[in-house]
C-alpha cells in the first residue's frame, strides 16, 4: 500500500523534521522547446537542400 507507514524508509537519523525540496530553476518551457524543434527542422531541411 502506497501510504503504509511500515514501509517508511529507515532514515539514517531520527532527528530533523521532514522537508520537501525542489529546484529553484525551472525546466525549459514547452514553447521554448517547440521553437528549438522548429529551428532544428529548418536547419536540417536547409542542410538537405544544399
Amino acid at each position: 500500500e502506497a501510504s503504509n507507514e511500515q514501509s517508511e524508509p529507515d532514515l539514517s537519523s531520527a532527528s530533523g523534521k521532514k522537508v520537501i525540496l525542489l529546484p529553484c530553476k525551472n525546466p525549459p518551457s514547452r514553447e521554448r522547446v517547440q521553437l528549438w524543434l522548429e529551428a532544428r527542422k529548418q536547419y536540417k531541411s536547409l542542410q538537405n537542400g544544399r
Binding site: 532527528s15 520537501i20 525540496l21 529546484p23
Partner: peptide, 30 residues
C-alpha cells in the same frame, strides 16, 4: 510543465549543498 520534488530531512540537506554550488543549481523548500 513539470518539476521534481525530493522528500528528505532538514538535517540531510547539507549533503546537497556542495553539489548545488558546483552545478549552480540551487534548491528551495516547496
Amino acid at each position: 510543465s513539470f518539476t521534481v520534488l525530493v522528500h528528505t530531512r532538514d538535517a540531510a540537506t547539507r549533503n546537497m549543498e556542495k553539489v548545488q554550488v558546483i552545478k549552480d543549481f540551487p534548491w528551495i523548500v516547496a
